[in-house]
Simulated scan of single mutants.
Amino acid sequence: MLDTIRQIETPEGVFLRLHAAGALPRAQAWLIDFAIRAAVFWAVMIPLALLGEGGMGIGALVVFAMTWVYSVVCEVWFGGQTLGKRALSLRVVGADGAPITLVPSVVRNLLRVVDMLPGVYGVGLISTLVDPHARRLGDVIAGTMVVHVVDTLGGNQVPTVPAEAPPRALSSEEQAIIVEFAERCPQLTPQRQRELADLLSPLTGQTGDAGVRRLVAFANYLLGRA
């Protein structure tokens, strides 16, 4: 039930760290979504009940939409977040860290029927405990995972400055070090930034604040920013 870190290397050789969400925050998000669906159901069904059989037919469509369509629409068109996941700062993404698309979303949500067996998400809970990235069976088959938003947005924490190409080709490990440094800059004191940047002065050709700025410029280049 503990959260885990998944490190992925992009085709550009940049490493992404995805903080996989454990069973507890996912269960809390599900409860919030369940409460929202229940509230909408009763708000709609009370007036529809006055319409007789026609109203009940419309109510059945509402139940279907809230049970199956709600999650898919939120995941595909609202950044991988239902209202419950947004409240818990969670997001559904592809196993490679890419935004979730329609087919994987449909698959993972249809397989909730299996994950709920034999009741109270029994299969799903066992799967999250066994899988190294806390995925329920539906996520394993669909090739998706639920992560904490702060980790999926790690690259956006890099200060935006004019990008600059490194003076030589960098290994995947060197690229990851530079991007990680730039991500951590906002949390480091200026003295610590300069201290770390000076370690890479053979690459930047600069020391002190100039070295820090050049490393951040390299990071922006590695992240594909113009």
Rank of each mutant, 00 (worst) to 15 (best):
T160C: 08
L83V: 01
A35S: 15
L51E: 12
E9G: 12
A134R: 15
V146H: 02
E183C: 13
G138V: 00
Q175E: 06
G57V: 08
D139C: 09
V161C: 03
E173R: 12
L18M: 10
L215Q: 03
L31F: 13
A197P: 01
A226L: 09
L16I: 14
P162T: 01
F15A: 15
G122N: 07
V107I: 15
C185V: 14
P47L: 07
A35M: 11
V113A: 13
T160A: 10
R91A: 04
G79S: 03
V123C: 06
S71I: 02
V103E: 06
F41P: 12
E12Y: 02
P118G: 11
I178Q: 03
L203E: 07
Y70N: 01
L196P: 11
A217E: 07
P186F: 15
M116A: 15
Q28H: 12
A27R: 07
S201F: 03
Y221W: 14
A27F: 13
Q81C: 03
A20M: 07
D115W: 06
W77T: 04
R17E: 15
V147H: 04
T82A: 08
N220Q: 01
G124P: 01
L137P: 01
A197C: 01
V73W: 00
I32Q: 03
G80F: 00
A98E: 07
T204M: 00
A20H: 09
I5H: 12
R225F: 02
M116V: 13
R213A: 15
E75K: 01
R194F: 08
G59E: 03
A163P: 11
S201H: 14
I126N: 07
I58T: 10
R194D: 08
D3I: 11
M145F: 13
